[in-house]
């Protein structure tokens, strides 16, 4: 059936069509989130202070260990640059957590604001919606991590002379894809469980933190936990980042890290969209879209 059934009194649908309109709609989510960050600047500042102090505590553990190694009999070339090792873990995790958190909490946040129904009713595809939220999460994650890195550089001197920073950036951006996929899947939890879904997203990120080798090599995990590390994209991102920054691995040599990252991204992104679509229909059938907890 056509909306233009009566030519003399044509119905005026939403103007524009195609990629341009979808891109503008996607940008609406980016712009809106920038405005929200600006208005909630005091919360952002508090989280940044928390991130910086937590990271400093971890890095000072590394500093202490390195001083002990230096006083001992371990030769300088055999010593691991523990501060840099932990620093990579801290900054990369801050980035991936920001990406995952922004995407994963999009439903919970809008539920809290009371705008979820309005957003779900808007004439934009869910893909456009997710692209906008994801793009913002990447920009936000990079900005937060750069700030964290900048502050840490004031307190710790690290040797980046061998680092392949271009390769590291490639690994980080590729890793974002699968974290967005995981985030979209996590975002369904507040749709399915309005009262406790948000807390469940924290459980997912905590589990990823434990199994992915953020502060330690995966090899120290108990045997039964190690297979979990293989399905976490953070494992490969961290290994790839350490290979490029600590060991100076060339970009052409980071394939073994990029391949699983990209495979996980290709699997988790469409899977996340499919799961979200199913959860949205479930929420619309059961009336859970409206409930605010």
């Amino acid at each position: 059936m056509s909306v233009n059934a009566s030519p003399s009194r044509r119905v005026n649908p939403v103007p524009g069509a195609g990629i341009g309109r979808e891109a503008r709609a996607s940008w609406a989510f980016v712009e809106r989130n920038f405005y929200l960050v600006r208005r909630y600047w005091h919360l952002e500042l508090a989280f940044l202070v928390f991130n910086v102090t937590s990271a400093m505590s971890v890095l000072y553990i590394g500093e202490a260990q390195m001083q002990r190694d230096a006083a001992g009999a371990i030769a300088a070339e055999q010593r691991l640059d523990l501060v840099l090792y932990l620093g990579i873990g801290t900054v990369v995790w801050a980035y991936l957590r920001a990406v995952f958190g922004n995407v994963g909490e999009m439903v919970a946040w809008e539920r809290w604001e009371g705008t979820i129904e309005y957003t779900m009713m808007a004439p934009v595809s869910r893909l456009t919606h997710m692209l906008g939220v994801s793009l913002f999460s990447i920009i936000y994650g990079l900005a937060r991590s750069a700030l964290l890195l900048g502050v840490l550089a004031l307190f710790f001197s690290v040797d980046l002379s061998r680092a392949n920073l271009g390769g590291a950036a490639l690994v980080l951006l590729a890793g974002s894809l699968s974290f967005i996929g995981f985030g979209i899947m996590a975002a369904t939890l507040p749709l399915l469980f309005p009262e406790r879904g948000e807390e469940m997203t924290f459980v997912i990120s905590s589990l990823l933190l434990v199994v992915s080798g953020v502060y330690y090599p995966v090899s120290v995990l108990p045997d039964w936990m190690e297979p979990l590390a293989t399905v976490s994209p953070a494992t490969y991102v961290l290994e790839g980042m350490r290979a490029t920054i600590l060991d100076g691995a060339a970009t052409l040599a980071i394939g073994p890290y990029l391949l699983p990252i990209l495979v996980l991204g290709v699997v988790t992104l469409p899977l996340g969209l499919a799961v979200f679509g199913w959860a949205e229909r479930y929420a619309k059938r059961t009336g859970k879209l409206k409930r605010s907890g």
């Binding site: 939403v14 103007p15 524009g16 309109r21 503008r24 709609a25 940008w27 609406a28 712009e31 809106r32 405005y35 309005y118 957003t119 808007a122 004439p123 934009v124």
Partner: peptide, 10 residues
């Protein structure tokens, strides 16, 4: 501004 962008008005 956010709502109007969603509805294609820029």
């Amino acid at each position: 501004g956010y709502a109007l962008r969603l509805y294609g008005r820029t």
